[in-house]
Simulated scan of single mutants.
Amino acid sequence: MVKKVEDLQEYRDTKDLETRIHKLPSDAQTRIIQNIVSQTCWHGPATREWLENEISSQEQLETMFSKPIEDHPVEDVFGSEIRTGDKWFEDGAGRVVLEDNAEDYLVEVTGVQFFRAIK
Score class of each variant (00 low, 15 high):
D104V: 07
K23F: 13
L51F: 04
A102Y: 13
R83A: 06
A93F: 14
S26T: 13
E52I: 06
E10T: 10
F115R: 11
Q58Y: 10
I32W: 00
V112N: 09
Q58E: 14
I118W: 07
V96G: 03
I33V: 14
S66Q: 07
A93T: 11
D76K: 00
K67I: 14
R31A: 07
D86N: 10
E6W: 14
K3Y: 15
R83N: 10
I36S: 08
R95Q: 10
F114R: 03
V97M: 08
T84Q: 06
A117S: 14
K23Y: 11
F78E: 02
E99N: 00
G79F: 01
R116T: 13
E62F: 14
V96P: 01
F89K: 03
V2G: 07
H43T: 08
V107S: 04
I33A: 15
K67Y: 13
K3T: 14
Q113S: 08
T40I: 09
T19N: 11
E103C: 05
T19F: 15
L24Q: 01
Q60N: 07
K4Q: 08
D13K: 03
R20I: 12
V112Q: 12
P45L: 13
K67M: 12
A28R: 08
N53S: 12
Q34G: 11
W42Q: 15
T14K: 10
D16K: 15
I21M: 15
A93K: 15
I82P: 00
T19G: 06
H43G: 03
F78A: 04
I82H: 01
S26A: 05
V74I: 12
H72N: 05
T47I: 06
T63R: 05
H72F: 14
K67F: 12
F78V: 00
D76R: 04
V107R: 05
A46P: 15
R95H: 05
S38D: 15
A46Q: 15
D27K: 10
E99Q: 02
G44P: 06
G44V: 10
P25R: 01
D86W: 06
